[in-house]
């Protein structure tokens, strides 16, 4: 596959992370580059993850009624 036909897709999971397919690097707000090591990655969208920029499931604690 050449770089010209490479497509990156993003899917917002309701109440959950962004699923990103086809990326090589995710660059965070501070400009730090994070290598992508799997075909599909879940990027944190709630801002509460303990392993930024990746989702670690913490969003569930936010939506769970107490």
């Amino acid at each position: 596959m050449t770089s010209t036909d490479r497509e990156v897709t993003v899917e917002q999971c309701p109440g959950g992370p962004l699923l990103v397919r086809g990326a090589d690097i995710i660059r965070d707000a501070e400009g730090t580059a994070h290598d992508v090591t799997r075909p599909l990655v879940a990027v944190c969208a709630c801002g509460k993850t303990g392993r930024p920029p990746w989702c670690d499931g913490t969003h569930k604690a936010l939506r769970r009624p107490t």
């Binding site: 699923l19 599909l40 879940a42 989702c55």
Partner: peptide, 14 residues
């Protein structure tokens, strides 16, 4: 599995 299953959960459910 913290990282992998955060992805797998979405893939499996959706």
């Amino acid at each position: 599995h913290v990282e992998a299953d955060a992805v797998h959960e979405q893939v499996a459910v959706r």
